[in-house]
Design a protein around this nucleic acid. Sequence first.
DNA 1: GCTCGAGTACTCGGATACATGCTGTCCGAGTTCGCTGGG
DNA 2: CCCAGCGAACTCGGACAGCATGTATCCGAGTACTCGAGC
Lengths: 152, 152
Amino acid sequence: MKMTSGVEAALHSCLIMHWREGTPVTSGRLATFFALPPAYLQKTLRALVAESIVGAARGKSGGFVLIRPSESISLMDVVSAIEGRSPLFHCAEIRLDGQSGQLGPRSGACSISHAMHRAEMSYRRALAAQSIADLAQQAGSTVRERTLSALS
Amino acid sequence: MKMTSGVEAALHSCLIMHWREGTPVTSGRLATFFALPPAYLQKTLRALVAESIVGAARGKSGGFVLIRPSESISLMDVVSAIEGRSPLFHCAEIRLDGQSGQLGPRSGACSISHAMHRAEMSYRRALAAQSIADLAQQAGSTVRERTLSALS
DNA sequence: GCTCGAGTACTCGGATACATGCTGTCCGAGTTCGCTGGG
DNA sequence: CCCAGCGAACTCGGACAGCATGTATCCGAGTACTCGAGC
C-alpha cells in the first residue's frame, strides 16, 4: 500500500499550471524544473488529460494547461486520475470461499469490509475537501513569484 | 495504491482468534476455511507475530492465538503490521531537486505534503478507532456460532 | 513591402522494456502427543 | 498398574521462485512558428 510517485509530480504540476493562469507549460520544462524523467512526467500528465483536468496542446507553443477552475479541482480528483478509482481495500470476500462460504445465508456485507470502507471514506473526504486553489493559497505568494520566474 | 490482500486474511483470522478465546488455531485450518494458500496465510500471520499481536505455539497442538485483549487491538495495528508503517504518500520533495530546489530558503514543508499528510491522518485515526472486539460485536453471535462450529 | 508556402523544430501520443515488491512455494527447526517397554 | 523414554506427526520459521504493477523509455503523429521566394 504505497501511493504512486506520480501523484506528487501531478500535484506540483497542477499548482504551477494554476499559477501560470492559462499559459501552457511543456512537460519538458516541468521535468527539468523538478529533475524528473521527462517522458515519465509527460505520461503522468496525460493521465490528467484523460480525466479532463488539464488540456494538452500540441505544436511548438504547446503544453499543458488547467481547463477547469482550480477551485473545483480537488486533491481527490488528481489522486484518482493517477491512481484509479478502485478502493484501497478491495474485499475479496474470502468468507465466500471454502467452508466459510457454506455457513448459510450471510447478513449483508462482512463487518470488516464495512469498517475498512468507512475509514477509506474518511480519507477520500479529506482529500476532496481541499482544492488546488487552497494549496496555492497555503504556499504563499513568495513561492509563487520565485517559481514563475524560474520557469520563464 | 492498493492494499495487500493479506490484510483481509489477517483481519478475518484475528476475528476468529478472538472468538476462540485462547484456543490456538493452526494456519492450515484457517487456510482451508478461507480457501487460501496455506503457506501464504501462515506467512501473513507471522507478520502479526512479529508485531506482538498474536502468539505462535509450535508442536502438535500448536497454532496462533491473540496475546493481547481484543479491545486493545485496533485495525490500524493489524494494517500496519502487514503493510508496514511507511506513509501512503511519501513526499520525495521534488522541489529540492533541479531548479525548484534553488529558489532560496523554503518555508517549512510544502503545502502538498501537508495536505496529503492531513488526509492520511484522518484515515489512520478512523482505523485506530475500531478494534477487533468491535468487529466481533458487529458481526453478531450467529456468525460466531456458525464459524466456531465449522472450525471445530 | 506584402503574401503565400514549404520546411523545420517543437510538442503530445501510444507502444514498448526494466525494476520493485506482493504473491505463492518449498524444505528445515522445534515441540507436543502417543505408544511402548520396563519396573 | 504406573512411569520413563523414544518415536512420529504435526506445528511454525526462514529462504527461495513467479508474476503483476509501477517506473522509465523510445519513436511516431501532429501543430505552430519561421524563413524565404514570388508578386
